[in-house]
């Protein structure tokens, strides 16, 4: 798997992870942050989800902090379990540091990206890329039209332009390479229609094995193994 390219792509990259509810933004964000940290990249993850009360990246703040990641969430702390729009102003700090990679893990749909208005000025000063997570198994994004509907709604509300796609089709622990292929095909179709590049192709490690062979072609975008950090072992 392309393990080095994440670090070498762009130092100090700002990635804004958006998408439809339940597309897997949080797992993608945490997995990406953990991978960057493992490669020694200074990285901050800001959990900007003010929509969901559960399964937020801040739940893994201890794990990520131990890995050297700067984790930012509510101004009331990581452990307060409220769906309040109380985002910490600390988010501005890594956004002002051009040497630090920043992942903004935002809430679902166009509702979730409203919070980005607060950081519009910061994002203009950085090479920020808005990424859209595509999950072909979510009922509202099974086809190109569904994905584009959400893409446009997210762009309209955030006044930002989506710059890349993340393929993240899965059925949790039971995901196979076939699922990743199915999701990749949809992401590819969206890419063809919009001209947006595929930045990452996600899956649990066993489902990414032999993906290029199955496709019979090189994979566009980097393989990003998903750690299922938000999913307890019993789920």
């Amino acid at each position: 798997m392309g393990t080095e390219s994440v670090a070498s792509t762009r130092h100090g990259a700002v990635r804004v992870v958006t998408g439809h509810y339940g597309s897997g933004k949080t797992e993608v964000s945490v997995s990406l942050a953990m991978r960057l940290a493992a490669q020694g990249v200074p990285v901050a993850l800001a959990d900007l989800d003010v929509v969901n009360p559960y399964f937020r990246s801040r739940e893994q703040a201890d794990l990520m902090t131990a890995a050297g990641i700067r984790v930012i969430s509510s101004s009331l702390g990581h452990t307060i379990t409220l769906d309040l729009p109380a985002v910490s102003p600390e988010v501005h700090i890594p956004l002002a540091d051009p040497t630090c990679d920043v992942i903004l893990d935002v809430g679902g749909n166009e509702v979730g990206v409203r919070v980005l208005a607060e950081f519009a000025a910061d994002l203009r000063r950085r090479t920020a890329e808005v990424l859209l997570v595509v999950n072909a198994y979510r009922p509202e994004t099974v086809d190109v039209a569904g994905v584009l509907h959400h893409l446009r709604a997210i762009e309209a509300t955030s006044s930002l332009t989506v710059g890349g796609l993340i393929s993240n089709t899965h059925v949790c622990r039971d995901t196979t390479v076939d699922d990743v292929v199915a999701g990749y095909r949809l992401t590819q179709a969206v890419s063809e229609q919009t001209g947006l590049p595929i930045r990452f192709v996600c899956g649990i490690p066993s489902a990414l094995d032999g993906l290029a062979d199955r496709l019979g072609a090189p994979v566009e975008g980097e393989l990003l193994p998903i750690g299922l950090y938000l999913r307890d072992a019993w789920m």
Partner: peptide, 8 residues
């Protein structure tokens, strides 16, 4: 295994 992923 069904291939539709939903929230409860």
């Amino acid at each position: 295994m069904p291939r539709t992923l939903m929230k409860g």
